[in-house]
Design a binder for these strands. Structure first.
Length: 840
RNA sequence: GUGGGCGUGGCGGAACCGGUAGACGCAGCGGACUUAAAAUCCGCUUUCCCAUGGAAGUGCGGGUUCGAGUCCCGCCGCCCGCACCA
């Protein structure tokens, strides 16, 4: 029996789709628009299974919506700036640009081979001047609008490589490449005012109904909005400092004040106090790793200062420098209320400070605080004029008093910090600024954009290649004309991905985008990508879009109306222990023979250990390369498997038997089509019609909800039904419908079979089948019969049979009679068309 | 610690709004075709029992209900995020 020849079919249909520009999105189309987007890849060099899964899901949505009559924008591009290119340059001696562009070419070919319905005419790469030049223009617009500023900030500095390191490049306090102890250096850097949008970004989440709840919560927590009171402590011998609290109600419970080790007052006190200086130094070297914080004791050092309690000048509180106070949250200082805050309590017990209770549950006013702080609600006690109020009322009362008396005010505090975008790196968007000794930081004039990244650089020396380039940075000041220097920092790569979806929608040569065209496509209707971008990328893109809206560039508030985060592709691991203390030796799947109860190494036939199913990673060698698989099984089988079995938000375990099963399905559909060509005529078959239309209805819903695994199961059922169906018009119509339903998932097979059945046009151009409501209802239903809730049998009845008839039929069942054993039923519950439950 | 998610056969997973638990796939077992194999097709496949029938069963213990995988309370376990956030 001839098999479906995937290689010939893939080449044929991919060429036809390209030639007829099937997937080119038209801005001026009269159809309703739909924007389907997958997170664009970093061009690492190879497409991996995670990409294939991600883009297959997007492709199914895009192809389905297109068949449903939408003008679909489904673009693809390259997030092409970033450190791996620089690392490759150093390791392999190639230029980052050459390496990146070669990778893009290779990966584009791989993606095209899988038959994704991308509009390649809109392809972009962020490392090309036509993209990053427009990004520079947007940066200057934000600067002009006051949303960009410059300030000193600490970076990780590698003194050997003379470079700034990202946090992930610092391992145990040392540079990952040089091994040198990393220093904290203050550099003047550019910041984007994302905190200006903190409220908008929190409140906007409420409208994102088609986002996972989890991602919205993560963003909300990341922004970390809290409301409370900021007030000033007067120091008894002069000076003052501010503290922030969310619990102003507990102010009478204060027994100390604490400031961060980096607080300016701590530094001043340490000037003539060597012991304090030593303590501050100790705090700084303390680890911030989770495990350390967990076990680290609350420690402090008494500065000798005392501050006046704002509600009673007679009360004085000691001031400590404490290791648990963070300089970069709130004001870097707090008041300690041990009875109602666990950290404060731990601290107070260690330094024998008083622990006055000020909030108590009713009837429990005198209960002493032990080792656990009371953080629940209750009524105020030991708090003078607040006594008897609820804690919530007391909160408002204290704030009102502070504001009336002028020593404090209600404030909203955020965990979110402004976004530092300066990177002391070569392979990124040059920041379009010139530094002049006379004029300061001067924007590059628009006419001189783009500021092009020089290609003639060397990366094999320590330091920033832009900084040591012989000519690049030396330019006249745009303002006064005197010799000046270009900014040699580049923008964080997250800026590249913060607006690429806008550039896909509209990419004029002379400006970043056309507002009307972009707004017609945006927001993205369905965005699909990994959950690892739940916070940073998605938050930055939301911020960037709102910032563009504020400065009048684009009338869109939220860039992504629908978000879906897909699971990873995983695989078993194969290893052999290498003896005591040694790391195990890992083996790649292609070197393994897998049987039902174990695995052996092909090379020597010996057994290997089958380990956990985990994310594909080079270090564990459990990686399956799409290229080999595509060659062997074909794009459609791979796509089919990517959608099968696991729900898309969960991990998908790659397995040989799984892809075998997908391949079998492709062949089954092909055979069905071939048999149909030769089929003789027959009669209509209502059962077949019903099965087909039920599948249309169910599968359309499944795809709409991105439940691809369920859609796959329905198609298996339909194929099985059609294989059993007698030949005739019903079967023929069913096979045709099947091809349309299968087309978004296995498009090459569908086109090939569509043509085989004599269609002139393309299946991808055919309108999505509509379910006939009349065929969705059965005229007979199966009624389940229970006695006391236990299933005893069932019978078929006409749909819509009345209650009395159903009761009678249920009672007539032999099993029911036996269960009742002659007793009369006490009660009978009938659920029409579903079941009868007899209560005995 | 804290926020969230999840727990269903040998495995991945279905089960609308509380109404026949285990769809569909994988693996396995049996059979057909074949000289044989591959491919394909058909059947079986939650567990247990005194087996033409019956009982139990969705992490554990309670509860609500005629009826609970689904709702409520209390546990246990796993996964993910954040983490000294005042």
């Amino acid at each position: 029996m001839p098999r479906f020849d995937h290689q010939a079919a893939e080449a044929r249909w991919q060429a036809i789709w390209a030639e007829r520009q099937c997937f080119v999105a038209r801005d001026d189309s009269p159809k309703p628009k739909s924007y389907v987007l997958e997170m664009f890849p970093y061009p690492s060099g190879r497409v991996h299974m995670g990409h294939v899964r991600n883009y297959t899901m997007g492709d199914v949505v895009a192809r389905t919506r297109r068949a449903q009559g939408f003008e679909v924008l489904h673009p693809m591009g390259w997030d092409a700036f970033g450190m791996p290119a620089e690392n490759a340059a150093i390791e392999k001696g190639v230029h980052p640009g050459a390496w990146t562009r070669a990778n893009i070419a290779a990966m584009r070919a791989q993606l095209q081979r899988i038959g994704f319905a991308f509009d390649w005419s809109r392809e972009l790469a962020t490392c090309e001047p036509d993209y990053y030049g427009q990004e520079q223009a947007l940066f200057l617009d934000l600067l002009a609008a006051g949303l960009v500023y410059r300030k000193d900030a600490a970076v990780n500095w590698d003194p050997v490589d003379m470079t700034v390191l990202a946090n992930e490049q610092v391992i145990d306090g040392r540079g990952w490449r040089s091994g040198a102890l990393v220093e904290r250096r203050k550099l003047s850097q550019w910041f984007l005012k994302i905190t200006d949008f903190a409220d908008d970004l929190v409140e906007g989440l409420a409208g994102l109904h088609e986002w996972p709840e989890k991602v919205r919560l993560m963003q909300e927590n990341w922004i970390g909005r809290s409301t409370g009171l900021r007030f000033t402590f007067q120091i008894t011998d002069g000076g003052s400092f501010d503290v922030f609290t969310t619990r102003p109600d507990t102010l009478f419970g204060a027994s100390f004040a604490a400031i961060a080790a980096d607080h300016p007052i701590a530094a001043r006190c340490a000037e003539n106090n060597a012991a304090l200086a030593a303590f501050i130094e100790e705090c700084r070297t303390g680890g911030t790793a989770a495990a350390e914080i967990e076990t680290q004791e609350k420690r402090g050092f008494d500065t000798g200062l005392s501050v006046v309690h704002p509600l009673d000048p007679a009360l004085l509180l000691p001031v400590f420098v404490a290791n648990f106070v963070l300089m970069d949250y709130g004001t870097g200082a707090l008041f300690g209320c041990p009875a109602h805050d666990q950290r404060d309590l731990d601290f107070a017990r260690r330094y024998q400070l008083p622990v006055p209770r000020v909030v108590a549950p009713a009837g429990d006013e005198q209960a002493a605080i032990g080792t656990e702080a009371y953080t629940g609600s209750g009524l105020m006690v030991n708090s003078r004029w607040l006594d008897g109020m609820s804690a919530a009322d007391a909160r408002a009362a204290v704030i009102a008093r502070a504001e009336a008396e002028g020593w404090g005010e209600a404030v909203t505090q955020y965990r979110l910090r402004d976004w530092g975008v300066s990177r002391q790196r070569y392979w990124g968007t040059p920041i379009p600024i010139v530094h002049c000794d006379n004029c300061g930081a001067v924007p590059v004039p628009r006419a001189e954009l783009p500021v092009i990244l020089p290609e003639d650089v060397t990366l094999d020396l320590p330091g920033n290649p832009l900084d040591r380039h012989p000519t690049w940075k030396h330019v006249p000041c745009p303002s006064c004309g005197k010799p000046a220097r270009r900014e040699t920092d580049t923008l964080d790569t997250f800026t590249n991905s913060s607006w690429y979806f806008i550039r896909f929608a509209s990419a004029p040569a002379d400006r970043p985008f056309d507002p009307a065209v972009a707004a017609a496509w945006l927001p993205v209707d369905q965005y699909i990508g990994g959950v690892e971008h739940a916070i940073l990328h998605l938050l930055y893109a939301r911020f960037w879009t709102r910032a563009l809206q504020r400065i009048g560039h684009l009338d869109v508030a939220e860039p992504f109306a629908g978000l879906f985060t897909q699971g990873m592709v995983t695989h078993e691991t194969y290893s052999r222990a290498q003896g005591e203390g040694a790391a195990p030796l890992w083996f790649a799947p292609e070197d393994i023979d897998r049987t039902a109860d174990g695995a052996t190494l092909k090379a020597d036939g010996g057994a290997v250990d089958v380990g956990r199913v985990i994310k594909m990673s080079k270090s564990k060698k459990n990686v399956v390369d799409p290229d080999h698989i595509l060659g062997r099984y074909g794009a459609d089988a791979v796509r089919w498997f990517m959608l099968s079995d696991s729900p898309p938000e969960r991990d998908l375990a790659w397995s040989e038997s799984g892809i075998d099963g997908a391949w079998r399905f492709i062949q089954r559909v092909w055979r069905l089509a071939e048999e149909q060509v030769a089929a003789t005529d027959g009669a209509d078959d209502a059962k077949v019609d019903r099965a087909v239309h039920r599948t249309i209805a169910a599968m359309t819903t499944d795809i709409d909800r991105l439940q691809f695994n369920k859609a796959v199961a329905r198609l298996y059922e339909l194929v099985a039904a059609l294989e059993r169906a007698p030949s005739g018009p019903s079967r023929r119509a069913g096979v045709v419908t099947l091809l349309q339903l299968v087309a978004p998932m296995a498009p090459h097979l569908a086109e090939e079979a569509w043509a085989l059945l004599g269609h002139d046009g393309l299946v991808c151009d055919a309108a999505w089948p509509q379910a006939d409501p009349a065929l969705l209802v059965d005229d007979e239903v199966t009624i389940a019969v229970q006695v006391n809730g236990k299933l005893k049998g069932n019978f078929t009845a006409a749909k819509g049979s009345d209650t009395a008839a159903l009761e009678g039929m249920a009672l007539a069942l032999a099993n029911v009679q036996r269960s009742l054993d002659g007793a009369a039923p006490r009660k009978i519950i009938v659920v029409p068309d579903r079941l009868v439950n007899i209560v005995a």
